[in-house]
Design a protein around this nucleic acid. Structure first.
Lengths: 142, 142
DNA sequence: CCTTGACCTGGAGCGCGCTCCAGCTTCTAC
DNA sequence: GTAGAAGCTGGAGCGCGCTCCAGGTCAAGG
C-alpha cells in the first residue's frame, strides 16, 4: 500500500505524535499499548531513541483501535497479537477469537437496543407531558 | 399502583437480596446505588435496620439499570434522580437529559457498527484462508 | 552555541463502577 | 435458646484503561 516510487530511500515513518494524530490516539496511549504488548513488535527507533512508526505499524494500530472501540479488552487484544506474532498456523485460533468477539458485540448491541427501547418509551411519555405543560402522570416511578 | 386488595395490611416489600435478584443486581450494588444518591429516597427500613424494597423502588431501580446498561454514567443518573426528586416543573430538564442520552447511545451504536464492519471483513479474510488451509495473505498487518 | 520543544523511561495517580471486608446486629429455623 | 444465615455500616481494595509526572536526552532553528 502507498508504496512511494518517487523517493526510494525514504521509507514511510512518523514520529509518535504524528502516529498519534493519524490514529486518533495520544502518544501516551501509543506507548502504553506498546508496553502492554499489543503491538506485533517493538516500534523502530531513530537515532537510538525516538520511535518511528511505519505503515505496517499504523495499519496494525488502526485495527487495534477498531477492536478497542467495539469493546474488546486489552487482555484479549494482547492474545490476538500473540497469535499473529506466532505466525502461520494460528489462523484458525485468530478466526475463532474474532468470531467470539463479534458474537459478544452483537449480543451487546442487542442488549443496548432493548434497553434503549424502554428509554424511548419514557421519552415519549415526557414529551407528551411537556408538550401539554402537564406534570408527568407518574405513580411512584419516573 | 398494584394496590393489593386481597391482603390490605401487607404492603409489597422485599429484602435486599430479593430486590437484588429481582433486578439482576447484587445487594452490594443496591447499597452502593443508594449511597451514591441514585435512588429517589432512602429505602424504607424494617425493625430499625434491614432495608425493605417496595414496588416503586423496584420500578425505579429497573429504570436505573436500563440507563446503566445503555452506558449512562452514575453521575448523570444521579442528576436525573435529583430532577425527579425535585418534582413537578423539572419535566423539560428530564426530557432533555434523556434525549441527550439517547443521542449519545445512537452515536455509540453507530460507531460500534462501523468498527464491527471492518472486523467482519477481517473475519471473512480469515475464514477464506482457513477454509483453504492457506496462510493469511497479509502484507504487514494481520 | 543556546534555547525550545518533542521525546524518552519508569512509575505513580486517577476516574469509574463496583466488590469485598471486618466487626457487629438481627432474623429464622430448629 | 441457639446456630447459622442474612443484613448492617464505614471504609478499603480492585480491575480497567488510560493519563500524568519527574527527571533526563535529543534535535532543529536562530
Amino acid at each position: 500500500m502507498a508504496a512511494v516510487l518517487s523517493s526510494p530511500t525514504e521509507t514511510t515513518s512518523r514520529t509518535i505524535s504524528e502516529a498519534a494524530s493519524a490514529t486518533g490516539l495520544t502518544p501516551d496511549t501509543l506507548r502504553y499499548y506498546e508496553r502492554a504488548g499489543l503491538l506485533l513488535r517493538p516500534v523502530d527507533r531513530a537515532a537510538s531513541s525516538h520511535r518511528r512508526y511505519d505503515d505496517g505499524d499504523l495499519r496494525w494500530i488502526t485495527l487495534l483501535t477498531k477492536l478497542r472501540r467495539t469493546g474488546m479488552p486489552i487482555r484479549q487484544i494482547k492474545r490476538y497479537a500473540q497469535l499473529v506474532r506466532a505466525g502461520a498456523g494460528t489462523e484458525a485460533d485468530r478466526l475463532a477469537l474474532l468470531q467470539e468477539h463479534r458474537a459478544a458485540v452483537l449480543r451487546q448491541l442487542e442488549e443496548v437496543q432493548e434497553n434503549l427501547a424502554a428509554i424511548d418509551h419514557k421519552i415519549s411519555v415526557y414529551r407528551d407531558c411537556v408538550l401539554e405543560d402537564q406534570p408527568v402522570p407518574e405513580a411512584g416511578a419516573a
